[in-house]
Computed example of a mutant assay.
Amino acid sequence: MRTALEKKAELQPSPAEVSGIDHVSRALELVLASLDDSKAEDIVSINLQGKSTLGDYMVIASGRSHRHVAAVADHLISALKDAGLGFPRVEGMSGADWVLIDTGDIIVHIFRPEVREFYNIEKMWLTPDLDDDTVH
Rank of each mutant, 00 (worst) to 15 (best):
T3M: 15
A4V: 07
L5K: 14
L5W: 08
L5V: 14
K7H: 12
A9N: 09
Q12W: 03
P13W: 07
S14D: 03
S14M: 02
P15R: 01
A16C: 07
E17L: 02
E17V: 01
V18R: 11
V18A: 04
V18K: 11
V18N: 14
S19G: 06
H23S: 12
H23I: 01
S25M: 04
S25V: 12
S25D: 11
A27F: 06
A27S: 15
E29M: 05
E29K: 12
L32R: 10
A33F: 01
D36A: 13
D36V: 11
D36F: 03
S38G: 11
A40M: 03
E41I: 08
D42H: 07
I43K: 02
I43P: 04
V44W: 03
V44I: 11
V44Q: 00
I46D: 03
I46L: 05
N47M: 01
N47K: 07
L48S: 09
G50I: 01
K51Q: 13
S52G: 08
S52K: 10
G55R: 09
D56N: 12
D56W: 00
D56L: 00
M58P: 02
M58K: 15
I60V: 11
I60A: 12
A61D: 08
A61E: 07
S62H: 12
G63N: 12
G63T: 13
G63W: 05
R64P: 01
R64K: 09
H66T: 15
V69H: 06
V69G: 06
A70N: 13
A71P: 06
A71T: 11
A71D: 09
A71F: 10
V72Y: 05
D74F: 08
L76E: 08
L76R: 14
I77N: 05
I77M: 06
K81L: 13
D82N: 13
D82V: 09
A83C: 01
G84H: 02
F87L: 10
P88Q: 14
R89H: 14
R89E: 09
V90H: 14
E91T: 10
M93V: 10
S94R: 12
A96M: 09
A96S: 15
V99P: 08
L100I: 10
L100G: 06
D102A: 10
G104P: 01
D105A: 03
I107M: 13
I107E: 13
I107W: 06
V108R: 04
H109W: 07
H109V: 01
I110N: 03
F111M: 15
F111E: 11
R112D: 10
P113E: 08
E114H: 10
V115F: 03
R116G: 04
F118Y: 13
Y119C: 01
Y119R: 07
I121K: 01
E122P: 00
M124Q: 05
L126S: 07
T127L: 15
P128R: 01
P128D: 01
D129H: 02
L130P: 02
T134M: 13
V135G: 11
H136I: 07
H136E: 02
